[in-house]
Design a protein around this nucleic acid. Sequence first.
DNA 1: CTTGACACTGGTGTTGGCTCTAGGGTGTAA
DNA 2: TTACACCCTAGAGCCAACACCAGTGTCAAG
Lengths: 141, 141
Amino acid sequence: MAQNGSLQIGEIAALADVSVDTVRYYEKLKLLPTAARTNGGYRVFSVGMADRIRFIKQAQEMGFTLDEIKQLFISGGGENQCKNVRDLIRVKLTELEDKMRQMKSFKGFLNRHLVACENELDAHGKAASCPVLTTIEISRK
Amino acid sequence: MAQNGSLQIGEIAALADVSVDTVRYYEKLKLLPTAARTNGGYRVFSVGMADRIRFIKQAQEMGFTLDEIKQLFISGGGENQCKNVRDLIRVKLTELEDKMRQMKSFKGFLNRHLVACENELDAHGKAASCPVLTTIEISRK
DNA sequence: CTTGACACTGGTGTTGGCTCTAGGGTGTAA
DNA sequence: TTACACCCTAGAGCCAACACCAGTGTCAAG
């Protein structure tokens, strides 16, 4: 609506696929810079802010908390800013790699159970007794 | 303490690396079978329960909610029990694969920034202006 | 100059997954 | 027989990350 490529909160929220509440919340948490205002008191955003919000969302999906993401943005400032960011990214990368390894092995675990499940179903149909449940100690009352 | 290889709540909690509150909480949510009691009213657990608790914790780390994990344990019962578990595992597997793909691309993203960071540091030392922060729109006040 | 869509603030509510507290009982060891 | 570590229950509290609400203001269109 506004010229200059500047958007109001509803528009940026739609672009970034979040709610307006979320945008205000992120501003309050300093995940976004304090937005400028119109005379009427409406926040105005540059289009690029949508990218930043999407970045936040993606990082979140990767298991980062909002606080950690904020650290990534702030990370001390000053002389060693770049170094701090680098260190943070390194830590996050190893965490990510760790988690991926874990997921891989858990995937294997689920896969093995899936196969067992299907064999049992082939052999006994609907009434098959589930081999997954018994494996995970369900039966030890 | 107790013979028979049966443990009390503090012992099983330590084994599974969770708090006693967590164990009681899981029992309340039916993630664990209702524990037997001593005359004095103390819960008693078999050693194997620690495995089950650890399974729950791991599934949780993989992004499953406690409720979903419960579904895995219960999943209807009766005739189609095995089929239900199978279907659930299938859904979870595709979710897991999805997430792993996402993580891989996010890892690449972080890696690229890490490289940029290190180049900048090589070139300008401590005072390097961080290329990550500017990229993610931090500078657009 | 009113209507309707959108925006504002401050506050409360929600969900998941614990965590803590109060007030009490159990059990073994000195 | 007292000390101490552990256990019990019911319920309140807590944190993250929003969602929702009331009461009010803004503003472009007709």
